[in-house]
Design a protein around this nucleic acid. Sequence first.
DNA 1: ATGTCAGACAACGTCTGA
Length: 266
Amino acid sequence: MRIATWNVNSVTARLPHLLGWLERARPEVVCLQEIKCAEDAFPYEPLAALGYDATVHGAGRWNGVAILSTVGIDDVQRGLRDEPGFLEDGALLPAQEQRAMAATCAGVRVWSVYVPNGRAVGHPHYAYKLDWLAALRTTAAAELAAAPTPWAVLGDFNVAPTDADVWDIALFETSTHVTEPERRAVAALGEVGLSEVLPRPLKYDVAYTYWDYRQLHFPHNLGMRIDLVLGNNTFTGSVFDAYVDRDARKGKGTSDHAPVVVDLDR
DNA sequence: ATGTCAGACAACGTCTGA
């Protein structure tokens, strides 16, 4: 089975690229992030024509996640357990955003997640990001306590796990994505039984998954590895290959993220 | 140059978020 994750930065803007990539890579299961469309505006038909069922958690302009599958979709869950919302103004109640959903596809439990960006260290969105990652850990712990079925969380974590996962750590001194609290929050997922599937790069030394649209970052390979796959032992033990498909970042009209592809011997 | 995108709103430009 082939499972992939891809932050598409709008599923409607990316539809031609997405369809072309699905035809080439033929993953059985795909976790999408930043679909930026409501559930009823999702392009179900062209995806169904390629054999994909879809389950969607989206509301419109921002965020939004989905799971595509050619092998069935069961036990869909939208949102994390006790998922926090972003509290822009202390007077408002937190409104949960569309950043996480799960489905079971041919016996494999997958979560598609779009972790909050954080915006700036010390910004309320940064605290939200850390709270959100804590809720992800709680949710993972609760599900993993059940039967040891293959289980994985895939998506845009907006965290680079090590200094080597950004093109120049010296430029990130005051930035989000590389701070110790963010890294600890991701590493804490290891304490509930998850470990990273490390993809191989198709070119260069590091399997970056994101390159800013601006300033020729992609041609200069000024990237970050922030789209991650973490699985339980049952999942990671059946992985025989994983890579970042940087070719999907090439050319006009692409996402600023590349897909991460994982191959399982099941 | 925060130099590129995407979406929404009321526009044909400006804002927000990444």
